[in-house]
């Protein structure tokens, strides 16, 4: 079992979802999966090395990601209310 490859696979799943899925919910999920993949290594290494510091890093890094995701959710609700869109990649097509 190779943990780095495991988390890389998870990261790849997240990036895949972000690039291919057009649904807003899926975009948010992909972002969460990417965040989970990113923070997973900290826990794994912390446990393998017997060093608690990794868990501290994990909590700090994950809470930054989560709080910004919360803003994205708020922004999406507003975007849905004012622009009537449900697909963030539609937005980027409005220009160029």
């Amino acid at each position: 079992m190779e943990y780095i490859i495991l988390s890389m696979t998870l990261l790849a799943i997240g990036v895949y979802g972000l690039l291919t899925k057009r649904n807003l919910l899926k975009t948010l999920m992909s972002i969460e999966i990417i965040a989970a993949a990113a923070s997973m290594n900290f826990v794994v290494f912390s446990s393998l090395l017997g060093d608690r510091m990794g868990q501290v890093f994990f909590i700090l890094a994950l809470s930054v990601d989560t709080s910004i995701t919360a803003v994205v959710v708020a922004l999406l609700l507003v975007a849905n209310r004012e622009l009537k869109v449900s697909d963030i990649w539609d937005l980027s097509k409005l220009k160029e």
């Binding site: 807003l24 919910l25 948010l28 999920m29 969460e32 989970a36 900290f42 826990v43 912390s46 446990s47 990794g54 868990q55 994990f58 909590i59 994950l62 809470s63 989560t66 995701t69 919360a70 959710v73 999406l76 609700l77």
Partner: peptide, 22 residues
């Protein structure tokens, strides 16, 4: 890694609630 596990669960509960709403 109990601290991380509990923290992850707490975050997950919130996230899933938000996702149902979304």
């Amino acid at each position: 890694a109990q601290f991380a596990a509990v923290f992850q669960l707490v975050v997950a509960v919130g996230t899933i609630a938000v996702f149902f709403l979304v």
